[in-house]
């Protein structure tokens, strides 16, 4: 399939017991875009991303990736970066690379090797011995080494020092292909603001804003970060 929108959600809902995580999300995201998903804590970012990644089922409504319900096909075209490292500690860096190469037809081992060298990641190191930041780098490296149609990055910069942050942003820009869409969730907008084509604000499980980033600067005369602070000032 090749629908014009890579992501299409309508009235997407998800509850956990009495807690409403997503309360009717309507969302269309096109191809070749870098999109920021910003929200205060507990607004539903991770739930939305997990549904798109096929790890959670919606309670009601639909989420479609490339026109299909999340499943085997959509996972083959979607590269997902979880909000916490997902590899068992006993593995070596090389093991995690092998698993990705095995699982995903679109994995580019050469690219993975390049990034490892730049990051000075020792492939024979046990994952247990890596620092928190290095684990996150490893995970992002694996995700961005795929030639996916959709990258779902859940808080990719959370545990990373400012110097490495630039490198990570660099990796994202260098890694994504022009037809690919990158959805980055974050509560630190300043870090990713320069990268974004579009911005989505979530509040209490619904989309309260979805606009081009430059339009916000042009018509409102403020940065996305400023707008975010204004909109969510009383929600802290």
């Amino acid at each position: 399939m090749n629908t014009s929108n890579i992501i299409q959600c309508s009235n997407l809902q998800r509850t956990f017991g009495k807690t409403i995580a997503l309360n009717g999300v309507d969302l269309s995201v096109g191809r070749g875009r870098i999109v920021g998903l910003a929200a205060p804590n507990a607004a539903g970012k991770t739930t939305l991303i997990k549904i798109l990644a096929g790890l959670l089922q919606p309670t009601a409504g639909t989420a479609l990736i490339d026109g299909e319900v999340p499943g085997i096909y959509t996972k083959s075209i979607t590269a997902y970066l979880p909000d916490r490292p997902s590899f068992p500690d006993w593995m070596k860096v090389q093991d995690s690379i092998d698993i990705y190469a095995d699982f995903f037809a679109d994995f580019d081992s050469e690219k993975a090797g390049d990034i490892c060298r730049t990051l000075k990641l020792d492939r024979s190191a046990k994952i247990r011995t890596l620092s928190k930041g290095t684990k996150e780098k490893l995970q992002l490296m694996l995700v961005m080494s795929r030639k996916a149609q959709l990258y779902l990055l859940d808080e990719p910069l959370a545990g990373i020092d400012p110097a490495a942050r630039d490198f990570m942003l660099h990796t994202i820009v260098a890694g994504y292909n022009e037809e690919g869409t990158v959805l980055i969730s974050t509560h630190l907008i300043t870090d990713v603001e320069k990268l974004l084509d579009e911005v989505i604000f979530l509040k209490e499980g619904t989309v309260v804003l979805h606009r081009p980033a430059d339009e916000i600067r042009e018509t409102d005369g403020k940065s996305v970060d400023e707008l975010f602070r204004e909109m969510f000032r009383f929600d802290v």
Partner: peptide
């Protein structure tokens, strides 16, 4: 475009514009 986008740390679409 890509080189410049990387140098500036911005989206290639933005640099294109």
């Amino acid at each position: 475009v890509r080189e410049l986008a990387m140098q500036a740390g911005v989206n290639p679409n933005t640099m294109q514009r």
